[in-house]
Design a protein around this nucleic acid. Sequence first.
RNA 1: CGGGGAGUGGCGCAGUUUGGUAGCGCGCUUGCUUUGGGAGCAAGAUGCCGCAGGUUCGAAUCCUGUCUCCCCGACCA
Length: 593
Amino acid sequence: MRVSRLLLVTLRDVPAEAEIASHQLLLRGGYIRRVGSGIYAYLPLMWRVIQRITAIVREELNAAGAQETLLPQLHPAELWQRSGRWQGYTAGEGIMFHLEDRQGRELGLGPTHEEVVTSLAGDLLQSYKQLPVNLYQVQTKFRDEIRPRFGLMRGREFIMKDAYSFHASEADLQNTYLDMDQAYRRIFERCGLAAVPVDADSGAIGGAASQEFMVTADAGEDLILLSDDGTYAANQEKAVSVPSQAVQLDGAAMELISTPDETSIDALCRSNNWHPSQLIKVLLFIARLDDGTEQPLLISLRADQELNEVKLINAVGRLKGQEVLDCRPIQAEDLDRQGVNSIPLGFIGPDLDDDALRSARSWTKQFLRCTDKTAATMERMVCGANQPDQHRLNATWDDLGGTPKGLDLRKARAGEACVHNPETQLIEKRGIEVGHIFQLGRKYSEAMDSRFTNEAGKTEHFWMGCYGIGISRLAQAAVEQHHDDAGICWPTTIAPYEAIVVVANMQDQTQAELGESLYNQLIAAGVDALFDDRKERAGVKFKDADLIGIPWRIVVGRDASDGVVELVERANRGVQKLPHADALKGLISTLRP
RNA sequence: CGGGGAGUGGCGCAGUUUGGUAGCGCGCUUGCUUUGGGAGCAAGAUGCCGCAGGUUCGAAUCCUGUCUCCCCGACCA
């Protein structure tokens, strides 16, 4: 491709809309343009990157036995009503764009394809003999994100590879899950990305095991925790660790302590010379459950610990046996609104009586009590006395009505010891989630009532897995991981072009002819090459080539008359001056070993 | 949705406080010169100052409403 004919519009200034490096560089390099909030055009260079990534994904998935398909983006509401997700996905905070057709039928724009594919599987896969099947597609997804962000990182329209596997048994699902894990590792490696697989919460999608693939980068939206021996990695939402040792209280009998206005852990520790690990912190949350009940939560944690809300939501879901739609801290205004006024905020103990809720308007009148293991295992503690300006010192769980069951509700933090080996410590990194694999189990096949006939002649719901890769996000994540002050440094495998021939001065006949000849030879050798034949000054072309990040550059310049050119490697800026034939041979053998 | 910021040529911004004929840099067009790291000179083109009302002799500027975008939190590939 001749750059003079390429739709390449580079920007010298950073557009104000872009915050992080990858977003800025993709805009400046003429890769993408914003069309609306979270909506982007992939310009020709970007589309080539996307296609190269997609090609790698296809090769690896095909090799792993998956089959490509293409499912519709327009989904009849009826399908989503069958799985019970229509309401949740379209109402209020729902993430699905939806519309009505001229007949008044309701349709949704696919944010994900479990419903469509599960329903199809039920029609097409009748017998265990047809299983397993793993279907994938590369397609644009639509999600009305609460807040689109960072260019392609969180768009409302984005390209995703999603795959769904169907199995006759859980064991078979686990096999495919492991195959996908391996395929994903190869995909990210081939794309030149350092991606860490981490244990993940399976969240709204549900299911058993789940693993995310995180491209480590400071701009990442997720916090991940890794053991320093490299054997454990988890999203903070899921991560576990060994809590630090608590400082023991000298065991005396329980006594009431006057703590006027000391409503924070900080204040209490400062004025009474306590260590936070000697205190119990009690938090009030309100959870909205699937059946519409509003369940107040009384959460107890050792005061030096932080609550992990994802773990809390999961625990509440398990304890109540239903989905938690929403969970947030109770504010003073909430108490006013409920007419609940006997709760001494700042002085609550784990044994706060349910009587406090007696006047609640819409809340359930009984706390769901959730106690973190760090709190449940304390022998003696400081805790609120359930009356203003009073705390209890040296309380034991017997004093508080019995030892509660300890749950895991705390955030694991960097610096803490790992569970699998207390000799190792957790370190934290930020990550961009580029892939996620799930063992869904039978959640969707049951919801959609999709079945096959098993060996015994009985119908049975499919075991399912699902596996996603954010293709457009991956492309941007690659830039986030591979750039420098001058621009993008694409990994060669996903670069829009592998090489660019830059003629310093097109006015110079010798340079122009040599450049043209080298370009033609690269093309003949099957190299994806650009030829910068623009009548621009050399500096402009060098800046552009750096910015758009083509991995290899041949500069045909002032030594052209001696048959000498420069071979430049973008990523490390290494320059070799070589006779043009050698440069060409070297480059071709590097790219096509 | 809550909190913060911004809408002025393709991009980056000034001008708004204190109303008085819309500016700068980059980019774009033409010509001459220059030609290895975003050139110089000259001449140009490009604005419903987000939109709608209002105040005023006069509004980018003041008032009211509205829309859009960006950043921080809940969502997720």
